[in-house]
Design a protein around this nucleic acid. Structure first.
Length: 587
DNA sequence: ATAGGGTTAG
């Protein structure tokens, strides 16, 4: 087979073999043989191999490639500058800037020479680190070595300063150039875009001597996503002489980000070629703007077109399944990923857990959660939210304590989740306690939403006056949600006085929609206060208020049905409901 | 130098 012929070739001509391997993407299969043949003892061959492996990296196999690269690197006895640079370059891609800096410091400790290929990638790694201390140090070193005359290094400096928030300094370096290349213009424009200064970006764009697809793409993306001005983005898009794939995708994402799925779809259909990213943008747009059914449809179309989904598009479908509660489809995607060896990362796993939770499959969610080696805050949050929502408030709180024990990072959503779980399970004392410790032990300032949870917590337990007290004494202005929450509790515990207070407050906030009055009139009705009921009804019709139509979605045998209140066309489902209610009645 | 991803009460 291919590998055998490679190994024959290998003994005769490793260089030829490398060349072939690079062009046929077989490099990962033959590297083991290369190692076996001790070719790595030749540092030149070794670093060529390393370079080739890194070159073949693509976003969905980056972890695999990283492992291979590290393996090969560890086999090299005396790495040369080229080998070090290759590792730094590889890790300076968004994947792992910290590791890139680590290799850089080891490189110097090792006494290897740094050259003008080293610094641009080190600077790139610095740019994606928080703070800019390392960047400044490297800048100093670059100047001392005289490498700041090199345009690669200079452009690196510009984008490093822009990305770490100091556009002025970036601009100073840019202005200090005698001769600027296209990349320096583009870097500077991208710098302005990334900190929201579109006006300055536009000025440079207009002033530059010539533009390439990058220049246009940067500005289109900036207008679309950064400031939400798709109109301007579209003007630029239409004015472009030659549009590349990235520009199409940026433009489509501009629309999708604002929920303008019509124009997004139109462009998508019109584009000359699409990649996974184009499909992902569309799927994600539908998911995030309330049409998960369409997202599933697009995903099916994607498979039909022979486009292989990657983990990002998978996350899109999984969220769609989560929103719809379509367990079958979700499991199918899970299996698909496994079968096609698409590597799971934390994000995919978290999306899956969320999906299983929202579909009510606690066991599958738990199994996945406990099998994970690494979890992010979001993973924990999803788990706590899911347990709470499925009625396992106690387990949710336990998970919170486990989180604390493991010293896992927490954020404000963690507290929102655990407090909500407490409210659901009626764990008032635990909830209070956690709320109290939030600021002191965890240094997280409660936001309005957290006070909302507290109000919910007290409201669910019938402690309405304490709930009102929380609303009136909290440090920020109460939002309408809080009064709404109190109002809901007033209905459960039949408290007319506080209900009226809440509605009054809601009206002051201009948040008295039809739901508020329906609730109030229900409270009156339950207390037999019919005069008040009629007063509210009249008030509502005078304002032209109507009850909104209820909708829901269900999956039966893999098909998704949408219900609208009053619609009786789903016969088979009504048959099930009917037999269910008969069974319940006969118990 | 440019394009896509996970969590929020009812």
């Amino acid at each position: 087979m291919a590998t055998t012929s490679f190994s024959k070739l290998l003994s005769q001509s490793p260089f030829l073999c490398l060349q072939i391997a690079r062009t046929t993407s077989q490099i990962l299969q033959i590297h083991a043989q290369l190692i076996c043949r001790a070719l790595l003892s030749d540092p030149f061959v070794a670093s060529r191999l390393l370079f080739a492996v890194c070159e073949l990296s693509n976003p969905s196999s980056v972890h695999l490639t990283a492992a291979y690269a590290e393996l090969i690197f560890s086999q090299i006895n005396h790495p040369n500058t080229f080998a070090w640079n290759t590792m730094i370059r590889f890790h300076s891609q968004p994947s792992n800037p910290l590791r890139a800096l680590l290799f850089f410091s080891q490189m110097r400790k090792n006494g290897s020479f740094t050259d003008n290929y080293t610094y641009p990638f080190v600077l790139k790694a610095c740019a994606s680190m928080p703070g800019r201390r390392e960047g400044v140090v490297v800048h100093g070193e670059v100047v001392k070595r005289g490498f700041d005359e090199d345009s690669f290094v200079r452009n690196g400096l510009i984008s490093m300063y822009c990305r770490s928030g100091d556009v002025q300094l970036g601009r100073k370096i840019f202005d200090g150039y005698q001769s600027r290349d296209l990349v320096s213009w583009n870097s500077m424009i991208a710098g302005y875009v990334s900190c929201g200064e579109i006006g300055e970006a536009q000025k440079l764009f207009d002033a530059m001597p010539d533009r390439d697809a990058f220049s246009w793409a940067i500005l289109i993306d900036g207008c679309g996503k950064k400031i939400g001005d798709v109109g301007r983005a579209r003007e630029l898009f239409d004015a472009m002489p030659v549009r590349d794939l990235v520009c199409w995708n940026s433009m489509i994402d501009g629309y999708a980000g604002l929920g303008m799925m019509g124009p997004a779809r139109e462009l998508f259909e019109a584009m000359p070629e699409r990649n996974v990213i184009s499909w992902s943008i569309l799927i994600d747009g539908y998911v995030r703007h309330g049409d998960p059914k369409e997202a599933l449809d697009i995903f099916q179309q994607m498979l039909h077109h022979g486009m292989k989904p990657d983990k990002v598009s998978a996350v899109g479908v999984i969220s769609a399944c989560a929103q719809l509660g379509t367990l079958d489809q979700g499991r199918w995607v899970h299996l698909y990923l496994k079968k096609n060896r698409i590597l799971f990362d934390v994000v995919v796993q978290t999306a899956l857990i969320d999906m299983y939770m929202k579909c009510g499959s606690l066991d599958l969610a738990r199994r996945l959660f406990y099998s994970m080696r690494k979890r992010s805050v979001v993973t924990w949050n999803v788990m706590i939210v899911g347990l709470g929502a499925n009625g396992y408030g106690g387990e949710a709180v336990e998970l919170f304590y486990q989180m604390e024990k493991e010293g896992a990072l927490m954020d404000d959503l963690t507290f929102l989740a655990v407090l909500t779980a407490c409210a659901h399970a009626g764990l008032v004392t635990k909830g209070w306690e956690i709320f109290e410790r939030m600021r002191s032990d965890f240094r997280i300032t409660p936001k309005a939403e957290h006070y909302g949870c507290l109000v919910d917590l007290l409201g669910h337990a019938g402690r309405l006056h304490e709930a009102r007290n929380v609303i009136e004494t909290m440090p920020m202005k109460p939002t309408s949600t809080l009064w709404g929450s109190l109002l809901a509790a007033c209905r459960t515990y039949r408290c007319v006085d506080l209900a009226e207070v809440s509605v009054e407050q809601l009206r002051n906030l201009g948040a008295d929609d039809s739901g508020v009055y329906v609730l109030l009139s229900n409270i009156y009705a339950e207390e037999g206060m019919w005069d008040d009921v009629w007063r509210i009804r009249k008030l509502m019709s005078a304002r032209g208020m109507k009850k909104e139509v209820g909708r829901s979605v269900i999956e039966v045998n893999g098909r998704v049905h949408e219900f609208v209140n009053g619609d009786v066309s789903h016969l088979e489902i009504f048959a099930v409901l009917w037999s269910l209610s008969n069974n319940v009645a006969s118990v």
